[in-house]
Amino acid sequence: MTIYQISIFLENKYGKLSEILSILTQENIRIIAATVADTSEYGILRIIVNEPQKAFQLLKDNNISANISDVVAIQTDPTTEDFARTLTLLTKAGISIEYMYCFSVKEKAILILKTNNWDATRDVIRRENIRCINEGELVNL
């Protein structure tokens, strides 16, 4: 029910983002989703890619500070109702969302979530039969 996410330390400097993305695309890494969380001085670029381990190594080889972590990837219908229902289930279980972003592939909406309590999140997902995707499914979407 989890997939890899790569987080990259990003300085607020002109051209930094495109520099990092082109390191990856030059090696034919497909970027499935990307989001930037920023402060006034630096940001964190979070990406979901088709070959996370290769991408992570590539970034390290280029002396870029990066981190690889597990995130929950929930598949919902691309409707507001379904989206809201899923979040309500988590909220009712007392779970807070640390960050979230979503993207869609074909007719499916994928919700990437980082919560404050992984164990509780997993319990809710199992109990409520929430549809999650794993690494293999992601690439084949």
Binding site: Q5, S7, K114
Partner: peptide
């Protein structure tokens, strides 16, 4: 300089 990015959460950096 940071050594490695040890978190995916910018509030930790703050």
């Amino acid at each position: 300089e940071l050594s490695e990015l040890f978190t995916d959460d910018y509030s930790v950096l703050q």
